[in-house]
Every structure is written in structure tokens, then in C-alpha cells.
Write a protein that binds this DNA or RNA. Sequence first.
DNA 1: ACCTGAACACCGTTCAAGT
DNA 2: ACCTGAACACCGTTCAAGT
Lengths: 192, 192
Amino acid sequence: MVTPKKRTTPLTKDELFTAALAIADAEGLEALSMRRLAAEVGVEAASLYHHLPSKDALLSGVIVKMRSEMRIPDPLPEDWRELLLAIFSEYRRVLAAHPNLTPLAGRRVETDPDSGLVFLTQLGFSDDDAVELWQSMIALAVGFSIFGSAYAESDVSDLPSELAERMSDWRDETCVRSLRMLIDAYDAERAG
Amino acid sequence: MVTPKKRTTPLTKDELFTAALAIADAEGLEALSMRRLAAEVGVEAASLYHHLPSKDALLSGVIVKMRSEMRIPDPLPEDWRELLLAIFSEYRRVLAAHPNLTPLAGRRVETDPDSGLVFLTQLGFSDDDAVELWQSMIALAVGFSIFGSAYAESDVSDLPSELAERMSDWRDETCVRSLRMLIDAYDAERAG
DNA sequence: ACCTGAACACCGTTCAAGT
DNA sequence: ACCTGAACACCGTTCAAGT
């Protein structure tokens, strides 16, 4: 759906990211071209380069935008294990809500200082252990979301049918279960 | 490096997949165009469509080609846990050997009947547990490889410097350690 | 400062025509 | 059966020109 209206206000980066995310969500990543985005916001393709250096910058912005949808429960869980699980379950929830973006999910890792990683080291985790747990949680959550999206096609045709059916279904509960296992395992090995 | 030589034998799919894999390895996924591949094998771009239905089919073939490089140790490990670890460590090794292909790694899951998944069910794992463990191993191995490749850029600029440094380094040992933890955890919860 | 028109150097894909 | 030439409908990006 192109919405060509004469613009009265100048474009903003944020407006572009939002529109691009909407296009990718609705029509897939292939549909998201500079020309298509320009048409959507009522402008020529060349105009976009006054606000963005490249399409790559656009895609990065879209990911950041998506990740900004993460919401952590307001009374933070008291148990740090539950907190960690909440963070990464939420990450996975957001990824699952934008299945067309999963091919991009691996492009960019952002780790804020207040994200929980630093917190782990204060709980008695060594820097090494904290980072290893953090990396593994990201890898599992993102990997699981990629395979769970339509972007991935599973070839399980040669498996026994009960297994084939289950292998095509990447359930949320499975991801959370394995995330929890990682937390508990690192906790048990924690260098005090 | 284009190698335009007059061809004497007809093209084969396998030759195309091999050449395409070489281009992607050497110059990146963006460099792999139908026209570029055609030039490499000494033919016009249009000719490729006598052997392949689409570029998508080419990319799928490239992934299959890459995965065919997996080698499982010849005397199979006796311990099934070691076997499982060997399979997924090898998967990760192959992915790490082709970092330019990681964006494609999530496109296709293949699970052979003799891959080990069926084997798990014979060890007393329920179908559910076997599949959940299997999926989690794939997700972790692939996710880890994606973030470890140059394709991913980490923004850790706001972290304390020791943590930032470690967060940019996705070590093989970390992946294997977490894979092993998943195996042990599912083993412990196994429904006998 | 912001937008446009037109161009450049690419894409994937199709198809009639050649051998 | 296999390959080619030429075309179609797209790309991302640049740049002089307009307001």
C-alpha cells in the first residue's frame, strides 16, 4: 500500500525506521527497498540519502527499533535467574513478533551496561563465566527465533513422522526451557 | 578473479555449487551474483537457468555443499553424549570455516534419519525431549556461529573494557561448553 | 536545508534465436 | 540439449539542479 501524500514536515530518521519496519513486517524483507520506502513516506528515493548514509544504516536502525519494543516486567523479579530468563524470553518474544526480521537479527549485538551482564559479575560470576553465559543466551534465543520463522525451511522429510512433525515446530516453551538450563548450569559451575 | 575459458563439457549443478561457494568464501555473499558466477564458470548468466530454477536454489545448494564438509570421527565415540557433542561441534567448525555463509545458515535445517536424533529416542528420551534437545543444539551452534562471524557487529562500546573485549570474542570453547551443558541437563531430566 | 530528475552501474529472470 | 543476446523490471547510489 503506497501512500503518496505531499509532505509538510521534513523527514526524520525515526519516521523512516518505523515505516521500514512496517514494510518488512507486512511484506517481507525483500520488499523493503529504498524506492519502496521512499514511496511510502511520500518522497523520492534520492531524498532518503539526506537522512541516511546507506541502506545498511536503514537496516541497522530497523533492528534497533525492533529491539526497543522489549519490555521488562516492572517489579523486577527478585531472583536473578528469573530476571535473566525474563530478559531473554522477552528478546525472543520480540523476535518472534517480527519473523521477517530474523535474517537481520544476527547482524548486530548490543549490550548496554545496565543490561544484566554487569550485574552477573556482581553476583559472583567471573568475567569469563558471565560473558560466556550471556553469549550463549543470545545465541540460543536468536538461533531459535531464526529457525522458528518462516524464513527457515526444515527438511525433515526422511524422519519418522512423529519426529518430523515435532521438528518443524519450534516451540516457545522449548526455548525457555533450554535458556533456564543454561542459567542453572552456569550457576552451578559459578566461580565464587 | 574471473576465469573465462571456452567450455568443452556441459555445466553440472555440483560445479555451480562449488564455484558459488568459492566466490562467497573469497569475496562475500554480496559478490555472489548470477552474472558473477556465470563469468566464473565461463558462460552467460542466462545459461545458468538451464541448470537451476532460481538464485534461491543456488543458495540452498551452496549450504548443502558446505554441510557436506562435516566429518564425524571414524571410531564413533562410545558415549552418546560425546557423540552428540562431536556432531554439533563439527557443525560449528564447518560454519566457522565459512564465515561469509552464516547469514544463510538459518535458511535450511536438514535432519537425516541417521543423524542422531532418532538414536536419542532409542536411549530412552521421549520424542519431545529428543526433539527439544536437538533443536536447542542447532539453535545454539548456529546462533553462536552467526555472532562469531564478521557479518555481526557487536556494539559493546558502553561496557567496562574487560567485559567489552571478551564480549567481542565468541570462543569455540564457550560454544562447546554450553552445548555440553544442554546435553547433561536434558540427560538429567530424561524421561526414562 | 531539503527534495527532485536523471543518470550510472548494477541486479534476477525470461525468451526467441542460434548450434 | 545447451548456450547466447537482448530485453524487462527492478536495484542502491550520486549529483547537478531546483526551492
